[in-house]
């Protein structure tokens, strides 16, 4: 199969969906003339014009809010957050408007808007350009949250998000943008709400997503050499969460480790651990281990930035601790 980068995969998804549906348009800071600061919108305005691929003022609140308004008025907007770290500027528009209008208005409204948000640590971008904030939105009923880990899912999930009649937050990791992976040439959709068992195993389950998945696979390889057979699950979607896949795996392996780059405290791992403890604790043969970023802002210095998120070694050690 041909290999393309994660960024190219998202670009293909955008182009195909804009081709397919004239209601789809995209707006954000630096996306049209610059092509996106990670090149993820390169060439789109040349294909679809500067009306449908719009450079916005630096007005995150109104970028997101007008996306909601355009969706309510029958369009299917994609809005780009530049960096997920700026999402707080538009928070009211997300949790009080976007997430609630359908329910609050008794189902009169559909809100087919996609919010794309580059996240994650890269190259000492420091405290305000490096975060992973997906857990914030796990707490807000009415949103869907997807977070792909590879180019094929990046394309298939973005296409599904654009076609979804609900608001979807799409978190795309900045390091992943440059990585290549196999992507089918024929059209396909990756369903929202389905986790992917990346590697089957019988001794321990590691649940992860986005960039950290690679570290889990790395750790699994080392563990295999020691005879520990690891099952690795790529969550792909955070809301709605595919608990069934997690539970089935835990029932089989009886051990659970969860790893993500976002801060561990109050993170997605906490929700998974709580759900597993509530529903299938009787299958567990040891404590649930969570790995996540440290409870500090992300430091600038490469020496500190490097040790902030969980490492392959951390994941390896966590498994060893409970097996």
């Amino acid at each position: 199969m041909r290999e393309i980068t994660f960024a190219e995969a998202t670009l293909e998804a955008m182009a195909e969906e804009m081709e397919r549906d004239p209601r789809v348009f995209v707006m954000g800071e630096d996306i049209a003339r610059q092509g996106g600061i990670f090149g993820q919108f390169k060439g789109l305005p040349q294909k679809f014009g500067y009306d449908r691929v719009r450079d916005t003022p630096i007005s995150e609140t109104t970028i997101v809010g007008s996306g909601v308004g355009a969706a309510l008025a029958g369009m299917r907007p994609v809005v780009d957050m530049h960096f997920v770290d700026f999402v707080g500027i538009a928070m009211d528009e997300i949790y009080n408007q976007m997430a609630k209008v359908r329910y609050m208005f008794g189902g009169q409204a559909t809100v087919p808007v996609v919010l794309r948000a580059p996240d994650g640590i890269t190259q000492s971008a420091a405290a305000q350009h490096s975060q992973s904030l997906e857990a914030w939105f796990l707490h807000v009923p009415g949103l869907k949250v997807v977070i792909p880990s590879n180019p094929a899912d990046a394309k298939g999930l973005l296409k599904s998000a654009i076609r979804d009649d609900n608001p979807v937050l799409y978190f795309e990791n900045k390091v992943l943008y440059r990585q290549k992976g196999p992507v089918p040439e024929d059209e396909y959709l990756t369903p929202i709400g389905q986790a992917n068992v990346v590697k089957e195993g019988k001794d321990v389950t590691i649940v992860s997503y986005s960039i950290t998945l690679q570290k889990c696979i790395e750790a699994a390889k080392r563990l295999e050499q020691e005879g520990i057979n690891v099952e690795v699950i790529d969550l792909r979607t955070i809301v709605p969460m595919d608990k069934e896949t997690i539970y089935n795996s835990v029932k089989k392996t009886k051990h659970l480790v969860i790893a993500h780059e976002a801060v561990k405290t109050g993170g997605v791992g906490a929700e998974i651990a709580a759900a597993v403890a509530e529903d299938v604790i009787e299958y567990l043969d040891g404590p649930i281990m969570r790995l996540g970023g440290k409870f500090t802002p992300i430091p600038f210095s490469p020496a500190l930035e490097k040790i902030w998120p969980p490492s392959v070694e951390d994941i390896y050690s966590a498994v060893k601790q409970i097996i």
């Binding site: 809010g65 008025a73 409204a109």
Partner: peptide, 30 residues
């Protein structure tokens, strides 16, 4: 709200309607 007549909703957040109206106008323009 009454979407049938273009009433896109009252809003409990003061100033919550500016961006929504702007987006609806953008939809009309597009």
């Amino acid at each position: 709200a009454d979407f049938k007549v273009g009433m896109l909703g009252a809003n409990g957040v003061v100033g919550g309607g500016f961006a929504i109206a702007t987006g609806a106008a953008l939809a009309a323009k597009l």
